[in-house]
């Protein structure tokens, strides 16, 4: 493999996960904040809030996972590794 392609692939694999994690990290924080506020205001709704929170957290997490898939493709199945 060309050394410049290797270097670019490794760096961009790191960036794909790292930059992707920023957005979903902020989003998950906001969602957890909302859930905690909801539970504090209405503790009897905890079960329902927890279920919805887990589902929406997994949705946000999948955005980072897309970045991870891109990183894995770059590292293990690189289309440019001539």
């Amino acid at each position: 493999m060309d050394s410049i392609v290797t270097a670019a692939s490794v760096v961009s694999a790191g960036l794909a996960v790292g930059l992707g994690a920023i957005g979903s990290g902020i989003g998950q924080g906001t969602a957890a904040q909302g859930a905690v506020e909801g539970i504090a205001r209405q503790p009897e709704a905890e079960g329902k809030i927890r279920g919805t929170l887990l589902l929406s957290l997994a949705f946000m997490e999948s955005l980072t996972i897309y970045g991870l898939v891109v990183a894995l493709v770059l590292l293990f199945a690189n289309p440019f590794a001539g």
């Binding site: 999948s62 996972i65 897309y66 898939v69």
Partner: peptide, 16 residues
Amino acid sequence: LSLSMRLFGNIVADEL
């Protein structure tokens, strides 16, 4: 696309 990549990515990520 998102359905398949979400499941695949999560499971591979766990194993990795």
